[in-house]
Amino acid sequence: MLVDFLQLTVAGLSQGSVYALLAVGLIATYTVRHVINIAQGDFAMLAGLGAVSMVAGGVPLLLAVIFAIIGVTVASVIMERLIISRVKNLTTLVSIILTLGVSTLIQACMLLAWGAEGRRLPTFPGSDINVAGISIRSQELWMLGALLVVGGGILLFYEKTKFGKALRAVAEQPVAARIVGISPVVASIVAFAIAGFAGGVSGVVAAPLYLATWSAGLLLGLKGFVAAVLGGLVSFRAAIIGALVLGVLEQYVAGYIDGGFKDAVAFLVLILVLIIRPQGLVLRQSAVRV
């Protein structure tokens, strides 16, 4: 019984780490530009499919993964430059509509380029391990590790470094930020680069286990968004914890209730959070105000 519980927890944590990386990207753009990026999950799929094609074309796995992440990071910045930054009086609602358009565009391009069938990236190096009856897939360790390094790195960057803090100031006080010499343009580009990077990483670490498909990004993005809402859309910490909780909850529901309800968990959590605790899991609001 305990073994099952732990087995489900391990699977939930690794799935949750993919949601967490997406949530981190969403919060990065929200805190700086108040943009909700609906295309975040599609960027993840784009990275996965891009890496699959490169590996099929003979590029070593590690290089393919790096190129895919860089490519998606650049794509995210291009989206910011070509679309987001062109809009005067950008409200969050406008950003949702804009990025929804981008999401549809990316999906259509992926469908044309890679077809409708899901593609698998080779598993990263390493072997599956078994601890007291709990089997842990090597790829799951990669997923958790990616969250630890990338998610943790981004969190530290925003919360501990001067530049990171300054970036967040732009969202709160754009005029004041400009007066003290922080360029909102740079802040925005950096935020979208970080979002693209985190999205790309989540896409490539998930592709060996969950496959990459043109259409899967939207639901994945939604799960990341739910986690971000758990973080009140401002707290990286709370969002990461929220994402891990969401992943684990999904596994418990699938294991102890019914596999068919798994995707409903995110929606239920979203509704409950919005009704009961719209500020998310954030305990102090001080983190927002820099």
């Binding site: 909700i36 969050t92 609602l93 929804l100 968004f225 859309l233 919005l274």
Partner: peptide
């Protein structure tokens, strides 16, 4: 601030889904 934003985003995601 967060409530309408979250609702709108959720609605958009659901619509496209």
């Amino acid at each position: 601030r967060i409530m309408p934003v979250a609702l709108a985003a959720a609605a958009a995601l659901t619509l496209t889904a």
